[in-house]
């Protein structure tokens, strides 16, 4: 699906990414964790085609998409909904940009996501968690098969966040989309992903790639299991060294 080959990027003297190589398979959920300032957002801008790498290439389904835009779907940290559009019109933005709108599918998705009552509401009428749901559905409805999620739950409170993670899994597990997910929350990465990529800082290099062994579908119980805590400890050790 997505492949980064030895991608490096620096801004002036400061090297931000050094020889990043990673791979996201079809239908796979991959998380990237690392301390803030580790160049995670730069990585997304490179994949999105907003920046050009100094070295290396980016491939999507075998096609070289280095510095090309429009191949991925994106969910930013802030919901970034258009305040003048209703929820329905908002989730269709991604499709609009690529040409075709599918009202029926959007309606079904919104209903499945528990947003059926607010289809014709405006974003300011929704809570923070609801807005993030809309932003996720918007990314899911976009025709691209890879979604980049940039710390989408970091602005939410702890209770809402756990709900959102469960909700995201329930929606996503029925779907075929691949996800590349940025977070700095270890629990979140472990709970959601198939694979976790741990980055170091200054410049960001891949420290370790961890395959997460938990079966799907996953539920909240997992968060407190012995196995989960062991994996968490393991990741913390990697990050500290």
């Amino acid at each position: 699906m997505l492949e980064l080959r030895h991608v490096s990027k620096s801004f002036g003297q400061k090297q931000v990414l050094q020889k990043i190589s990673l791979h996201v398979a079809n239908g796979e959920f991959v998380s990237v964790i690392g301390p803030s300032g580790s160049g995670k957002s730069t990585m997304f801008s490179l994949i999105g085609g907003l920046l050009e790498p100094d070295a290396g290439e980016i491939y999507l389904s075998g096609e070289n998409i280095t510095n090309k835009r429009g191949f991925i779907s994106y969910m930013p940290q802030q919901a970034s909904l258009f305040p003048w559009r209703t929820i329905m019109e908002n989730v269709l933005v991604g499709q609009e940009l690529q040409g075709k709108k599918d009202y029926e599918r959007a309606k079904t998705m919104l209903e499945r996501a528990g947003l059926g009552d607010v289809i014709h509401a405006y974003p300011h009428e929704l809570s923070g968690g609801m807005k993030q749901r809309v932003a996720f559905i918007r990314a899911l409805l976009s025709p691209q098969s890879l979604m980049l999620l940039d710390e989408p739950f970091s602005a939410l409170d702890e209770f809402t966040r756990t709900d959102m993670q469960k909700w995201l899994l329930s929606i996503w597990e029925d779907d075929e989309q691949s996800i590349l997910f940025i977070t700095h929350n270890i629990d979140e990465a472990l709970f959601l992903s198939d694979k976790i990529i741990i980055l170091s800082v200054n410049p960001a290099e891949i420290k370790e790639v961890i395959e997460v062994p938990f079966k799907r579908p996953r539920d909240e119980e997992l968060l407190l299991s012995e196995e989960f805590l062991q994996w968490k400890r393991r990741i913390m050790e990697v990050i500290q060294f």
């Binding site: 997304f44 801008s45 999105g48 085609g49 907003l50 835009r69 429009g70 191949f71 991925i72 779907s73 994106y74 930013p76 802030q78 970034s80 258009f82 003048w84 933005v93 991604g94 609009e96 940009l97 690529q98 976009s142 980049l148």
Partner: peptide, 27 residues
């Protein structure tokens, strides 16, 4: 125009015309 919305539109591959008609003008 809100920087975050512009960033979103660019990440989604919006061209200059789409950026203008769908974001900057209504904004």
């Amino acid at each position: 125009t809100n920087r975050e919305l512009v960033h979103y539109m660019k990440m989604m591959g919006a061209n200059k015309a789409q950026l203008f008609w769908k974001l900057e003008l209504p904004h």
